[in-house]
Simulated assay, not measured.
Amino acid sequence: MPYAVDFDTVSTAGLESSPVAPALAGLRANEARYFRNKYAHVFAVEPAGDAPEAVDWVHHILDAERGIVISSPALEATTFQVENIRMAYVFYRSGLSINVMYTVDDGGKRAVGFKLSDGMDVPDELASFKFARQRSKLAGTIRGSYFVIKNEY
């Protein structure tokens, strides 16, 4: 069952098996705050096993576009639409967060974003990407990268 992520009181619920659970929880809360402030959307996640469509969609795009297979198990996932943008998020035990931003209108922006929790090493499958740093009150230092989606999904 999906539950709303609280960005006022950061909780590691659902992420306890991650070695960087507090940082991953902060990263998840950071995303929740962004969607609340920008779109008035309540960011809700559920266990990855309960959201196979979201996980499969993200993994299919990664594999089809770049041949990337994530080795870490998925812990939580969500998919939703805000305005004309379909969004999907998957949070992994390693501390990785992957999101897909897919504008449903033809010619819109479509990209896959990677964010690494504070204290997480860059996974081997993402070693070719350059990561920029940003500070977050909720998540500490977030390192992020992305690539543009070229095909239709």
Rank of each mutant, 00 (worst) to 15 (best):
L75R: 11
E125C: 05
A64W: 07
A21Y: 03
P52M: 08
A127F: 01
M101E: 14
F147S: 09
D63P: 04
L116V: 02
K109G: 15
S117R: 02
E65R: 05
G26I: 05
P73S: 08
Q81T: 15
D56R: 11
Q81Y: 01
N151F: 09
K137S: 12
Y3Q: 10
V122K: 09
G107C: 01
A44V: 04
S71P: 07
K38S: 13
D118K: 13
F131S: 02
E31S: 06
W57P: 00
F43H: 13
V20D: 13
G95V: 08
P52I: 05
A111R: 13
Y3I: 09
H41M: 07
K137C: 03
L126R: 02
T9E: 14
F91V: 12
S18V: 01
A54R: 00
D105K: 13
V82P: 10
S72G: 11
Y89P: 01
P2M: 09
A25C: 04
N37P: 00
F129T: 08
G67P: 12
A88E: 01
K38Y: 06
R110C: 02
Q134S: 14
D121G: 04
S11A: 07
S97H: 05
L62G: 01
D105V: 01
K130R: 13
P2E: 12
Y39T: 03
P22Q: 10
V42N: 10
A132E: 15
